[in-house]
């Protein structure tokens, strides 16, 4: 039983990983179909089930809060009710008055909820960050060191360079505007730093992939027996 629970998953990960690795070097119709089946269907189904697990976990969290009448349980009722309404409206093509009898297409009640509830809440929630990012910027941009000054200057140049005013601010005697300096900054030092980070990330990704394939990294199995 221990083999099935602890070792077999590692064997599966190794066999499946090596098979998909080998697929890269065998460009045939069968291997391409195998890859397409895995990435285009199996992985999507598994990710969908992981999403269901996440939703079940969220429902369980809020349901427990309601059941035990913990502080703020009323908000959990709001969350679960809204979730139930949206799923009901999205799954069942009911003829709601004034809306098309379709599930999620344009003109449906689901689409109305998306446009008038989800979009405003989403946009406002993120726009709210404009206020808090300003105070965060004040703290981060207090230039105490050379590096912090570089961050401050780069941030200011990019912000000025992305507004129409930036086009009018130019270095005297040259045709270098804030917009062109911001563009240069984004295309060169910014690209260089992110490319360096990306190269490190890729090497780490390869290393962690090899650790998973050879069973050294097993955290995906979780704890317990």
């Amino acid at each position: 039983m221990n083999f099935i629970r602890r070792q077999l998953p590692v064997v599966i990960a190794f066999c499946f990983g090596v098979a998909l690795w080998a697929q890269y070097y065998i460009p045939s119709r069968a291997s391409n179909e195998a890859l397409e089946t895995f990435t285009g269907s199996w992985a999507i189904i598994l990710a969908g089930c992981a999403l269901i697990l996440g939703i079940l976990s969220a429902i369980h969290h809020h349901w427990t809060k309601i059941r035990l009448k913990r502080a703020g349980f009323g908000y959990s009722i709001v969350t679960l009710t809204c979730f139930a309404i949206v799923v009901l409206v999205g799954w069942f093509p009911i003829q709601w008055p004034g809306f098309a009898a379709v599930t999620i297409a344009d003109g449906s009640f689901f689409d109305w909820i998306f446009l008038n509830v989800f979009v405003p809440l989403d946009a406002t929630m993120f726009s709210l960050l404009a206020f808090f990012i300003a105070s965060a910027a004040f703290r981060a941009f207090r230039a105490r060191s050379f590096e912090a000054t570089a961050l401050l200057i780069a941030g200011c140049i990019v912000m000025l360079g992305r507004v129409p005013l930036g086009e009018l601010i130019a270095i005297p005697g040259t045709n270098l505007s804030m917009t062109s300096i911001a563009g240069w900054l984004l295309n060169n030092p910014n690209t260089a730093a992110y490319r360096g980070i990306l190269l490190g990330v890729i090497l780490s990704q390869v290393a962690i992939s090899l650790r998973i394939l050879f069973g050294i990294e097993r955290t995906y199995m979780g704890g317990g027996d």
Partner: peptide, 25 residues
């Protein structure tokens, strides 16, 4: 130094994106 310039640029970009959303609202 390069990383700080890149982070500053990303920060500037993020601020502009959020301000743009605020203007939209």
């Amino acid at each position: 130094l390069y990383i700080m310039v890149a982070f500053g640029a990303s920060f500037g970009y993020t601020v502009m994106a959020r301000v743009s959303l605020l203007i939209g609202r």
